[in-house]
């Protein structure tokens, strides 16, 4: 409960009274709240255990369980798969580390271009809109194939044939269109009075965006951006169409030779483990800034 740790010495200096001591009523309320908290924790634990037990029994009790277990959850193949899959994950992480920030920056630029006002910027605005319209609708896998095989086919001087670089480029092109729309939603959710206030201080349009609108907009869309990054993380695996070996491809190779699907499960769990810290970090970040600014209250 808030205020439970209040310094009991901080009595009001104006009134000549003794130090504050919690009343019977407060103690009773706190005891009641504590018991409620205990009770709900107990209920939560019990219901979680019950659900888990039922799921476990249903799955392990099914007729095909022994075979399924051997095909999908074999400890032997899991151990075997660990090294190649982890090796493949390095590629996924590299792609994420390069493409992620690029997409976040490029998306922001596109969104900014789309929200520009004034006739001078019409071509830029049109271009940004067309870009988003086209690449948001264009299927990623086709884009990947076109770029990974089409660009080398042009036989341009000085342009790489590396499937990883080309695949990463395709990811950037596709995802920045999505991310741009996320940013734009954030920008448009900032109340017009904020722009009015900023422009009234004499800030230019760009300064208004930079110092007033974007800081608020980005904060609001952080969860959506994390969402896109998690999705990107999984789609980095698509570069295998060009022949690059990522975690999923590595697992696939093993599956093809052993007909045991455990390596894929291992790779899948790896992606989950990678996504969770990202989400938690973003949650923590948003909560921290919220706490600093919020009025408080319990509703």
């Amino acid at each position: 409960m808030s205020g439970a740790d209040v310094d009991s010495e901080s009595a009001d200096p104006v009134m000549e009274r003794g130090p504050y001591a919690p009343s019977e009523r407060r103690l009773a309320r706190e005891a009641y709240r504590r018991s409620r908290t205990r009770r709900s924790a107990l209920i939560a634990t019990a219901s979680t255990v019950a659900v888990a037990a039922v799921l476990f029994l249903v799955v392990t009790g099914s007729p095909g369980w022994p075979v399924t277990q051997k095909t999908f959850l074999s400890p032997h193949y899991a151990r075997e798969a660990l090294s190649p899959v982890l090796h493949g994950f390095v590629l996924n992480l590299e792609l994420l580390a390069v493409c992620g920030p690029t997409i976040l920056v490029l998306g922001l630029l596109i969104a900014a271009a789309r929200t520009l006002r004034g006739p001078v910027f019409l071509p830029l605005r049109l271009l940004a809109t067309a870009y988003v319209d086209f690449f948001r609708g264009f299927p990623l896998i086709i884009l990947l194939l076109l770029i990974v095989f089409g660009v080398p086919a042009l036989q341009l001087q000085g342009v790489t044939n590396d499937p990883i670089v080309l695949g990463g480029t395709a990811l950037v092109i596709n995802y920045s269109a999505y991310v741009a729309e996320v940013y734009r939603a954030g920008i448009e959710s900032v109340h017009p009075s904020q722009r009015a206030a900023a422009r009234s201080l004499g800030l230019t349009y760009t300064q208004t965006m930079r110092f007033v609108v974007l800081p608020q907009a980005i904060r609001r869309v952080v969860p959506a951006l994390v969402n896109d990054m998690a999705s990107l993380q999984k789609d980095t695996g698509l570069v295998y169409v060009g022949g690059a070996i990522d975690a999923v491809a590595a697992a696939h190779i093993m599956v093809a030779s052993s007909f045991n699907y455990t390596p894929l499960v291992v790779a899948g769990l790896g992606f989950v483990i990678l996504t969770i810290p990202m989400t938690r970090y973003a949650d923590w970040l948003t909560r921290r800034t919220d706490r600093r600014r919020a009025q408080g209250g319990i509703v």
Binding site: M1, S2, V6, R26, G297
Partner: peptide, 8 residues
């Protein structure tokens, strides 16, 4: 009740 009181 937008704020929870501590005592009283």
């Amino acid at each position: 009740l937008l704020e929870e009181i501590d005592d009283g």
